[in-house]
Simulated scan of single mutants.
Amino acid sequence: MSLSKAGFCSRTREASPLEHRKWVEVFKACDADNKGYLSREDFKIAIVMLFGYKPSKIEADSLMSSINPNTSGIVLGEFLNIVRKKKEAQLYRNEIRHIFTAFDVHYRGYLTLEDFKKAFKQVAPRLPGRTVLEVFREVDRDSDGHVSFRDFDYAMKHGQNEA
């Protein structure tokens, strides 16, 4: 049983009108020559403006290769779709971090079976103890009795794919 099947699922949300407007404004600001699209460099600047980091060459290459080959860059609709997906991924990662931190009541940077039992008792009191144990064993991939954030993050992502 995965964490998502045990009741810990992420939810996506639509961009607010304010966010959407901001994304359009960033697109227009980065399309300095009013070409109607963002070049690779324009796109990198837009991502810095919205997310505070410069995309790697691999990320930029991947995104540029995924766009319509008949265009010279990323048009507004494609840009909005890319930004929406990046925002969802960012929110999902923050949600996973928040859940992990809520489980890690002793601030150790890892979770034990006891941490799982306490957390599940609060959020799913009727969940059988064997199910909690099964989830813990699945998440504790190296069977050392400790679940790191990396293991937790992996389990949450793979649990989402199974749902």
Rank of each mutant, 00 (worst) to 15 (best):
S4A: 11
A6T: 08
G7Y: 06
S10V: 14
R11N: 14
R11M: 12
R13P: 10
R13T: 10
L18E: 15
E19C: 04
R21A: 12
K22P: 03
V24M: 02
K28S: 07
K28D: 08
D31V: 03
A32L: 11
L38F: 01
S39W: 11
K44A: 07
A46V: 00
A46T: 04
A46H: 00
I47R: 02
V48I: 14
M49A: 06
F51N: 02
G52Y: 06
P55T: 02
I58F: 13
S62M: 12
M64E: 02
S66R: 09
N68Q: 01
N68S: 09
P69K: 01
T71G: 06
T71E: 12
S72W: 05
G73H: 03
I74H: 06
V75H: 06
L76E: 00
E78S: 07
L80N: 03
I82T: 02
R84Y: 13
R84K: 15
K85R: 13
A89S: 15
Q90V: 00
Q90M: 09
L91C: 14
Y92H: 14
I96L: 04
I96H: 05
H98I: 12
H98Q: 13
H98E: 15
T101W: 02
T101M: 11
F103I: 03
D104G: 01
H106R: 15
H106M: 14
R108E: 03
R108G: 04
Y110T: 05
T112N: 02
E114G: 09
D115H: 08
K118F: 08
F120I: 05
F120G: 00
K121E: 10
V123H: 02
G129I: 14
T131D: 15
V132C: 00
L133R: 13
E134F: 04
V135Y: 00
V139K: 07
V139H: 00
D142M: 09
D144H: 07
G145C: 01
F149E: 05
R150P: 09
D151C: 11
D151W: 04
D153L: 14
Y154E: 01
Y154K: 08
A155L: 03
N161T: 10
A163H: 13
A163N: 12
A163C: 10
A163L: 11
